[in-house]
C-alpha cells in the first residue's frame, strides 16, 4: 500500500493568505497528523506500516525541515510576516523563537535556548522545531511545541531524520526530544495560549 500524502491545508495555513502585514495562529490539533517536510517522502521518513495501520493522516508542507507529528498534546504556532525582498530568514527564526521563549519564561520554564538552526531546547533536548516558507515576499513560520506528547508516539511513526542538527549528535528520538511535561512543567494549552498571545502580540 502507498500512503496518501495530502497537500498541507490545515487551519493554521489560512493566515498565509490573509492580507495582514503580521499575523499569527495558535492551533491545538484535535487529532494526530504527520507533516512531511517539502523534501521528505513517506518511505524514508515514516514507519509506513504503523502509520497505515493507525490511519494517521499524512500531509506535506511547503516549507523545509524534517517530518513532524502533530497531536492533541502539542501546540502549533504559526506566524506570517510580509518582509519584501529581505532574505534574512535566520533573523525571523530568532525573533519569533525569542518571543516563544519569552512566553515560556513567564510561565517559569528555565534553561531555554535556541539550538541548531531553529529549534528551541531545554538543556540539550528539543521541545520545539520550526521551519520557514518564504513566497511572494511573505514569510510563513511554523513550529510545533511538545507540551506533553510521549516520545514513544514520535518514535512509533517517525524514522530517524535524514538530516539532523549538530547538537543532536546521532541521538534517537527518545534521547533527543522532550516535552514540557517530561521536564517537569505541568502546563496546559490554557496556560500557554495567553502567554503566547501576549508575547506574539508585541512589536
Amino acid at each position: 500500500m502507498t500512503i496518501e500524502v495530502q497537500k498541507y491545508d490545515l487551519q493554521d495555513y489560512s493566515i498565509f493568505e490573509s492580507s495582514k502585514e503580521y499575523d499569527y495562529y495558535l492551533w491545538h490539533p484535535e487529532d494526530r497528523y504527520i507533516i512531511l517536510g517539502r523534501a521528505n517522502n513517506p518511505e524514508a521518513s515514516l514507519e509506513t506500516d504503523l502509520v497505515e495501520a493507525d490511519q494517521v493522516k499524512v500531509y506535506k508542507r511547503p516549507s523545509g525541515g524534517e517530518t513532524v507529528i502533530l497531536t492533541p498534546n502539542t501546540l502549533v504556532i504559526s506566524v506570517k510576516v510580509k518582509i519584501g525582498n529581505e532574505l534574512n530568514t535566520q533573523k525571523y527564526f530568532k525573533e519569533i523563537n525569542d518571543k516563544i521563549m519569552d512566553a515560556l519564561s513567564t510561565l517559569g520554564v528555565k534553561d531555554l535556548s535556541m539550538k541548531g538552526i531553529s529549534d528551541i531546547s531545554i538543556g540539550d533536548k528539543k521541545i520545539l522545531g520550526s521551519s520557514i516558507y518564504l513566497r511572494k515576499k511573505t514569510l510563513f513560520y511554523h513550529a510545533v511545541l511538545n507540551i506533553s506528547e510521549s516520545i514513544e508516539v514520535i518514535s512509533k511513526y517517525l524514522k530517524h531524520p535524514t538530516k539532523e542538527p549538530d547538537y543532536r549528535k546521532g541521538r534517537s528520538h527518545k534521547e533527543f526530544v522532550t516535552s514540557l511535561l517530561t521536564e517537569g512543567y505541568k502546563l496546559s494549552v490554557k496556560d500557554l495560549i495567553p502567554a503566547l498571545n501576549t508575547s506574539l502580540s508585541l512589536d
Binding site: R38, G64, G65, I132, L134
Partner: peptide, 8 residues
Amino acid sequence: ETDKVVAD
C-alpha cells in the same frame, strides 16, 4: 530549499 527554509 535549505535545511529549514523554502524560499523564493
